[in-house]
Design a protein around this nucleic acid. Structure first.
Length: 309
DNA sequence: AAAACGAACAACCGCAGCTTA
DNA sequence: TTAAGCTGCGGTTGTTCGTTT
């Protein structure tokens, strides 16, 4: 299990991504789908390491990401889940598909932690996070840990949903806890994208306060809004169709008729896979039902709860 | 007006675990 | 069965931007 020579100094660019790099990445993912990150730098010519590409995609470019402006409900949900799951941001993020684990982690570190400390000082004991996860993580005990995770996730979900009346808590994008690895075949799976007919459309992405450049998710969605797509096929350069009439002024042209709108739209189309139905459209998946079921053995122990889907 | 400070966020690093040959 | 390769995760750092002095 040697450490891969990823991100090794030579020739690997670091630092902020440029719009050009973003477009290259998005265009590649549009064609090949997310995954096989190892191949991305070589195939795209990006001077980035695979990790960087994956991170950029999952934390920033992936459609359906909401940025900034955490609502009260989201805040409470995060606090709740953090109290139960600890700093397992990926697991927490699975309950907030519009948010990335990085975002949640940042928000926790910059806002919520301080808030909770203040609250704790004020006697808000309920807000105190569980400092440690259950200590069942030793090797060979993964089954127990898995069960613990599932139980915790179940509790978290139920409590969060019952306490947050009206929260549009979406279904987990993958298995409830990261321990449910088998169920979470691929965290980059379409389930990660709540946009697939889900509760959040691209055009509903909240505008980011101040993106570094035009390719924020908000601006991307704005660009897409105006695009009446007749152009079909992959984002290949060339052709009159590359200048869709609705193309906004903010669209970015990269020559050869390759525009940001086209590339990104195509990429988003890729993400809109039919596999995942929106929570609003689906009642409860078997897994969700099971997850919410207090003791999944009897199937009748579900306490009265509000399921705001 | 400018410097100092702090908050927010993007990105990197290294480890752990899963997959595959 | 095992080791190498790859991906995902959480912690941490660096940079940018806004606010205060």
């Amino acid at each position: 299990m040697g450490r891969p020579p990823c991100c090794d100094k030579d020739g690997v660019k670091k630092g902020p991504w440029t719009p050009e790099e973003d477009l290259v990445l998005v265009s590649y993912i549009q064609e090949h789908g997310p995954g096989n990150w190892r191949a991305v730098p070589t195939r795209t010519g990006l001077m980035r390491c695979s990790k960087s590409c994956r991170l950029r995609w999952t934390n920033y470019l992936r459609p359906g990401i909401k940025r900034g402006n955490f609502s009260d409900q989201e805040e409470k949900l995060i606090v709740h889940l953090q109290a139960l799951l600890g700093n397992r941001w990926a697991a927490i993020a699975s309950y907030l598909p519009e948010r990335t684990d990085n975002d949640i982690k940042n928000y926790w570190n910059t806002h919520l932690k301080r808030k909770l400390q203040a609250a704790a000082a004020g006697g808000d004991a309920a807000a105190k996070p569980v400092s440690q996860r259950p200590s069942s993580s030793s090797k060979g005990q993964w089954e127990r840990r898995l069960q613990t995770d599932i139980n915790m996730a179940r509790r978290a979900l139920r409590e969060a949903l019952t306490s947050l009346d009206g929260v549009n808590a979406p279904a987990p994008k993958d298995a409830a806890a990261d321990g449910v690895a088998a169920a979470a075949a691929d965290s980059d799976s379409p389930a990660a994208s709540s946009t697939s007919g889900g509760s959040l459309s691209l055009s509903q992405c909240s505008p980011s306060a101040s993106g570094p450049y035009v390719l924020t998710t908000a601006n991307i969605s704005r660009m897409l809004d105006g695009w009446t797509s007749k152009a079909s096929g992959p984002a290949t350069p060339g052709g009159a169709a590359d200048s869709p009439s609705g193309s906004s002024a903010s669209d970015v042209s990269y020559g050869g008729g390759l525009t940001a709108t086209r590339v990104l739209r195509a990429a988003f189309d890729y993400e809109r896979k039919p596999a995942v139905l929106a929570p609003a459209q689906t009642p409860l998946s078997e897994f969700e039902t099971w997850l919410l079921d207090d003791d999944n053995n009897n199937g009748h122990g579900v306490p009265a709860m509000v399921y705001p889907f």
